[in-house]
């Protein structure tokens, strides 16, 4: 922890010296990818990021509707072993369908 902080300080210093115009430093670059703010976002984020970053949800939106999200959630739960209860699956489906269903 201490070493990590020291390393961060060194990096920040060297970046400042390098004249980086904008800087964002966190535990992981993928944290820059966030889902739309709506009821169910935190549950959806929490379950999905166990295995993958969130671009999968954003980029697939144009190919998805409620039935396709339902199929995907079941695949993650039943085939990939995602720890999602039936009640959570329903909340995640409502969130994804209302925020990321782009297919007519």
């Amino acid at each position: 922890m201490k070493a990590a902080r020291r390393r961060a300080a060194v990096l920040l210093t060297s970046l400042a010296l390098a004249g980086a115009s904008a800087l964002l430093w966190g535990a992981g670059a993928e944290e820059s990818v966030q889902l739309k703010d709506a009821p169910g976002r935190d549950l959806t984020t929490g379950r999905c990021i166990i295995c993958h970053s969130l671009e999968y949800i954003q980029s697939n939106a144009p190919a998805m509707n409620r039935a396709a999200w339902q199929k995907t959630i079941l695949k993650m739960k039943d085939r990939f072993g995602a720890p999602i209860t039936d009640e959570e699956a329903k909340q995640i489906l409502d969130y994804l369908d209302s925020s990321y269903s782009g297919k007519s």
Partner: peptide, 16 residues
Amino acid sequence: RRELLLGTAGGWLLER
């Protein structure tokens, strides 16, 4: 949009 330097366990990422 943005030009960021991002750090991860895997190393440095330059993003545009």
